[in-house]
C-alpha cells in the first residue's frame, strides 16, 4: 500500500479521517456468508485453497451477524426465508453492505414460481448484483473488490441513509 515507504522517508502522512477510516475498512471486510443454496457452494470454493479470499482480507467468515460488514446472500430466497434474511440484515451493525450473489437472488432468475422472491431488492437495499448461476468464484472476488472500492469512497456522514450510492452492476458468466 505504500505506507511503509512513507514511514521510511518522512515519518508522517497527511490525509483525511474519512480516507484513513475508509482505507482501514476496505482492507478487512468481514462477510456474513448466508449460503442458502448452490451459490453457497461456490462461496465455499472462494474460501477454499484455490481462490483464497484471504488475499483480500475477507477470510473471516462470521456466522453471527453482529460482527459482519457485508451480507453475502448466496442463493435463492424464498418467501419463507425472506423474513430470516431480513432479520439477519437488521442485526448487522451499521455501516453495512449487501451483495446479491447469483441471478436468483438478484431477480428470481430461473425460478419463476409461487414461492421464490423475484429479487431480494424487494425487501433489502442491494449494493452489488452479481450475475451468473452460480457466479464463478473469480466473479465473486470481482464483486468483493468492487465493494471494497465503494467502501473506500464512503464518508462517515453518509452512514445514516443506506443505500449509499447507486447499485453497481457486474457483468459476467
Amino acid at each position: 500500500m505504500g505506507l511503509e515507504a512513507k514511514l521510511m522517508s518522512d515519518g508522517f502522512i497527511t490525509t483525511t479521517i474519512d480516507a484513513l477510516v475508509g482505507w482501514a475498512r476496505e482492507s478487512s471486510v468481514w462477510p456474513m456468508p448466508l449460503g442458502i443454496s448452490c451459490c453457497g457452494i461456490e462461496m465455499m470454493a472462494v474460501a477454499g485453497p484455490k481462490y483464497d479470499i484471504a488475499r483480500f482480507g475477507s477470510e473471516v467468515m462470521r456466522f453471527t451477524p453482529r460482527q459482519c460488514d457485508v451480507l453475502l446472500v448466496a442463493g435463492t430466497v424464498t418467501y419463507k426465508m425472506s423474513h430470516v434474511v431480513k432479520k439477519i440484515y437488521d442485526q448487522m451493525p451499521d455501516p453495512k453492505w449487501v451483495i446479491a450473489m447469483g441471478v436468483c437472488t438478484s431477480t428470481g432468475g430461473m425460478y419463476r414460481s409461487y414461492s421464490v422472491v423475484q429479487g431480494i431488492d424487494h425487501f433489502l437495499p442491494v449494493d452489488i448484483y452479481l450475475a451468473g448461476c452460480p457466479p464463478r468464484p473469480d466473479n465473486l472476488l470481482n464483486a468483493l473488490m468492487l465493494i471494497q472500492d465503494k467502501i473506500k469512497h464512503t464518508r462517515a456522514r453518509d452512514f445514516q441513509n443506506i443505500p449509499l450510492l447507486e447499485p453497481v452492476k457486474v457483468n459476467g458468466n
Partner: peptide
C-alpha cells in the same frame, strides 16, 4: 404457477 398475489408476505 406464479402464485396468488398477496398470499405470501414479504418483510
Amino acid at each position: 404457477l406464479m402464485g396468488i398475489p398477496g398470499d405470501l408476505t414479504l418483510p
